[in-house]
Deep mutational scan, measured.
Amino acid sequence: MAAGGDHGSPDSYRSPLASRYASPEMCFVFSDRYKFRTWRQLWLWLAEAEQTLGLPITDEQIQEMKSNLENIDFKMAAEEEKRLRHDVMAHVHTFGHCCPKAAGIIHLGATSCYVGDNTDLIILRNALDLLLPKLARVISRLADFAKERASLPTLGFTHFQPAQLTTVGKRCCLWIQDLCMDLQNLKRVRDDLRFRGVKGTTGTQASFLQLFEGDDHKVEQLDKMVTEKAGFKRAFIITGQTYTRKVDIEVLSVLASLGASVHKICTDIRLLANLKEMEEPFEKQQIGSSAMPYKRNPMRSERCCSLARHLMTLVMDPLQTASVQWFERTLDDSANRRICLAEAFLTADTILNTLQNISEGLVVYPKVIERRIRQELPFMATENIIMAMVKAGGSRQDCHEKIRVLSQQAASVVKQEGGDNDLIERIQVDAYFSPIHSQLDHLLDPSSFTGRASQQVQRFLEEEVYPLLKPYESVMKVKAELCL
C-alpha cells in the first residue's frame, strides 16, 4: 500500500493539533497551500530580480507567473513527485505547466533550498508574528487579574506546605514575570531571523556568478533584492546548502521555554482548584465526569500541561538535527523538520489560546482563602504575639514557653481530632496574655502579614508589564474561544 493518505478522510490519521486544537490561522501558515504558494512567490521574486539585473526574462513571463501564483494543481504535483521522487522539481514542473512561456526560467540558477529553506524562514517569521500578540493578550488578562487582587491576602506555599502570606495578585505576578520573559525572547528570536537568500547549491553562489558572467556586484544585488522582497532586513552571508540548523534550535528553545512557563502556571491553577481557592472557567453544560456528576475538573489547565510537556520535548529534535548536518548538509534534517517545526508552533498556539481562555474567566473564592488563612495564621502570628507581650512588660522566655504549650495543644486538636485551630481562643482565655487581649485582632490582621506584596504588584505592572504590552494595544480586544 502506498504511503500517505487522504487526510480529510475519517479513515486516515490526522494530527489532533490540526484537527482538534490549533487555530485556523496557525494551521494555514503550515498548510501545503501556504507552503507551495510561497515557493511560487519566491520563484517570481527571483525572476523579477534577475530581470532587473539584466537576464533575458520578459515582462510577459513575469506576468504569467504572477497570474498563476494561486493556480496550484495539487493532484498534478503529487503525481509528479511520485514520478520524480523530488518535491521541488515536482512543483517546478507543475508551475511550468500553467506558465508555459515562463517554464524555462522558473528556478533559474537556484537549488531546492532556495524555495525550501527560504519558505521555512518566512513561515517561522509569520508563525512567530501570530504567537506574539496571543502571548501579549494572556499577559494582559493576567495583569488585569493581578491588579484587581493585588491586596487580597492568601496563604503562600513553599514545598506545598503553608508559608508566609502573600497576595493573590502577587502570586499571579510570578506567572506574568515568566511570560514577559517569554514574550521578550519570542520577539528577540523573531527579529534575529535572517533570510537564507540566493546562495546556490553549497552556499557559494557559483551558479549565479556564472549567470551574471562573473559580476560579483550583481550577485550581491540579486541576494539583497530577493531578501528585501521577502520582507527581511538581512540575509546570511555564510550558508551551506541550507541555512544553519542552529536557527531551528533557537526558535524551538524559546517555544519550549514558553511551554515550561505555561505548565507551571496551569499546575498552580490545578492545585488551587483542589484547594477550592480558584477555578478555571466551567461552562453551564460542561460535564466533569461521566460517573461523578459533582466533579469540576480543571480540564483546560490539564490540557495545557499535557501539550506543554510535548512542546518542551520537541527542542531535542533540532538539537540532534543540527549535530548531524555533515559538511554542507545531509538530508537527516528533512523529514524531522517537516514534523517538529509545525508541531512546535501548533502546540504553542494551542496552549496560548487555551491559557487566554482560562485567564479571561478565572474565578476566585475569597471566603475559602480566608478560612485557610484562619487555619494557619495563628501559628504564624506567634512571633508577633511574643513581641507584643514583651512590649507590655512580659518575659520573652516565659511567653515563648506559654505559646509553645498552647500551640501544641491547638495542633493536637487540628491533627488528632480534625478540629479547627483554636490557638487564639486559648490565648484569649489565658490570664497571662490579658495585657494584649485587646491587640489580638490587630495582630491577626492578614494584611499585616503580606509585606509589600501589593506595592510590588503595582510597581511591576507599571514599570515592566504595561510598557512591554504597549506595541500590542491594537490587538488586545480579541477574545479566545474554545470549541473543545
Rank of each mutant, 00 (worst) to 15 (best):
2 A>Y: 15
3 A>C: 14
5 G>P: 08
5 G>D: 14
10 P>Y: 15
11 D>N: 13
20 R>G: 00
26 M>T: 05
27 C>A: 14
29 V>L: 14
31 S>L: 01
35 K>S: 05
37 R>C: 09
43 W>M: 06
47 A>H: 03
56 P>I: 06
60 E>H: 12
60 E>N: 12
61 Q>H: 10
62 I>W: 04
62 I>M: 11
69 L>S: 09
71 N>M: 09
79 E>G: 10
85 R>A: 02
87 D>N: 01
101 K>H: 10
105 I>F: 09
109 G>I: 01
110 A>S: 14
113 C>L: 06
117 D>Y: 00
120 D>E: 14
121 L>G: 08
127 A>G: 12
133 P>F: 12
135 L>H: 08
137 R>V: 15
154 T>P: 03
166 T>E: 00
167 T>I: 02
167 T>L: 02
167 T>N: 01
172 C>A: 10
178 D>K: 04
181 M>H: 15
181 M>F: 11
184 Q>D: 14
185 N>S: 14
187 K>C: 11
188 R>K: 08
189 V>I: 13
191 D>P: 00
194 R>M: 06
200 G>E: 01
207 S>I: 07
207 S>Q: 03
219 V>S: 04
220 E>A: 11
224 K>A: 13
226 V>W: 04
227 T>N: 07
233 K>D: 08
235 A>I: 07
239 T>D: 00
250 E>Y: 10
253 S>I: 10
254 V>N: 15
255 L>I: 09
255 L>D: 05
261 S>F: 02
264 K>F: 08
268 D>F: 05
270 R>F: 01
270 R>M: 04
271 L>A: 10
281 P>D: 06
288 G>Q: 04
289 S>I: 01
293 P>G: 06
294 Y>R: 02
295 K>M: 00
298 P>K: 03
301 S>R: 02
305 C>Q: 08
306 S>P: 03
308 A>E: 03
309 R>P: 00
313 T>G: 11
313 T>W: 10
314 L>E: 05
316 M>P: 04
317 D>F: 01
317 D>T: 08
319 L>C: 00
327 F>P: 02
333 D>E: 03
338 R>L: 02
349 D>L: 04
349 D>Y: 06
349 D>H: 06
356 Q>K: 03
366 P>S: 03
369 I>F: 05
372 R>G: 04
374 R>F: 06
380 M>D: 00
381 A>G: 07
381 A>T: 06
381 A>C: 06
382 T>G: 05
384 N>F: 05
386 I>W: 06
389 M>D: 09
411 A>W: 06
413 V>N: 11
415 K>Q: 02
417 E>V: 07
421 N>A: 08
427 I>D: 01
428 Q>R: 11
432 Y>A: 08
437 H>V: 09
442 H>R: 12
446 P>K: 07
452 R>A: 12
454 S>Q: 13
460 F>E: 05
463 E>T: 10
463 E>V: 11
469 L>Y: 06
471 P>A: 15
471 P>R: 15
472 Y>R: 06
